[in-house]
Amino acid sequence: MFASKVVTDKLTDQISFSILASGSSGNATLVETGDQKILIDCGLSGKKMEGLFSQVGRSISDVDAILITHEHSDHIKGLGVLARKYKLPIYANRKTWQAMDSMIGEVANDQKFEFAMETVKDFGSLQVESFGVSHDAAEPMFYIFHNGNKKFVMITDTGYVSDRMKGHIAGADAYLFESNHDVEMLRMGRYPWNVKRRILGDEGHVSNEDAGLAMSEVISDRTKRIYLGHLSKDNNMKDLARMSVTQTLAGEGIIVGEQIELFDTDPEMATSIFTI
């Protein structure tokens, strides 16, 4: 079922990225080096994805690979369309492939690649490390990007951040970090109790306060930016997420604006490309 693709070529130690979209309605991130452009997840329609790429002056035709975190629709909605249109290779672990194969339509076998959990793959100058998270999907995993001594981490869609996860993600230059909900907004909101219980559970999503506590245990002197991701449109607000995380970090002795900067993400507006 799976092809194999190995590329090795080292360039200058930089990683650039844009959080193209992040939220309950769709997720996608672009990571690039001098010789690689990698798309992580494709949770919006093909047309919307093309629009997001244009916002940052990039073209999907230049993408070298798509990496998938898990099979939920807000991460794979446009995957099949874009993979077929642009003939892009797709990487996911075996259980995720089994769960999403029938959801994305016909994709040629030579575009399907396996990326096992807890492994590292080289994409030109970029080394990509996969690690497991706790979410109600077949085998959800996220990614750490290395180029020389530079490190960018993506971690969303997890009910909690375990010590094992913290060991993987510690000491990055920049993070996309889940700050999904305010607990009181969720508890008082319109969602049925079974949905609230799912979000609050160990296989749901991380709250603002828990995100801040996890951040306090993994950031280091080299950490400059944290992007708050996957905010719930019903149970959170950008200002509230930033305030909650800022206060939680302050309680742990980490001052936002001095040691690190927090940045918003949006489900429809890409962040400017930033280079570490």
Rank of each mutant, 00 (worst) to 15 (best):
H75S: 00
I199G: 06
G51F: 06
M237I: 01
G253W: 07
V63M: 07
Q14V: 13
T246I: 02
A65M: 03
K5R: 09
F274H: 08
F152Y: 14
V56A: 06
F263Y: 11
S54K: 15
Y160R: 14
I219T: 09
K196A: 05
M165R: 02
F113Y: 15
A137N: 07
F152M: 08
S216K: 07
K47H: 15
V6I: 14
M165K: 04
Q111F: 13
L82S: 10
S102Y: 10
L11V: 12
S22H: 09
A83L: 11
L213V: 13
H146R: 15
Y191R: 13
L186H: 01
K151D: 05
R187D: 01
I199E: 11
I199S: 05
M1E: 14
I144G: 06
F115N: 03
P192T: 01
K150F: 02
L176K: 04
M185H: 08
Y143E: 01
E71H: 02
I255T: 13
D182S: 10
D41P: 04
N27T: 06
F2L: 06
I260P: 02
F131V: 00
G171Y: 03
S16A: 07
N194F: 14
M215Y: 00
G201W: 08
R187I: 06
I219V: 15
A172S: 07
H168A: 00
D234W: 12
K85D: 10
N194D: 12
I199T: 10
M237G: 05
A211E: 00
K150V: 04
D163W: 06
S22D: 05
G251C: 08
V31K: 11
D74T: 09
E261D: 14
I219S: 08
Y227C: 01
A270S: 11
K48C: 05
V195Q: 14
A92I: 13
L44A: 02
L176M: 11
I90Y: 07
L126F: 10
S125L: 08
L39K: 06
H230N: 15
I254L: 10
T96P: 04
M100C: 08
G159E: 03
C42P: 07
F152L: 15
K95F: 10
L200E: 11
G148E: 04
S130L: 08
Y160M: 07
A116K: 15
S162P: 04
E106K: 15
G257D: 09
L52A: 03
S59Y: 06
A170D: 00
V128F: 05
L200C: 02
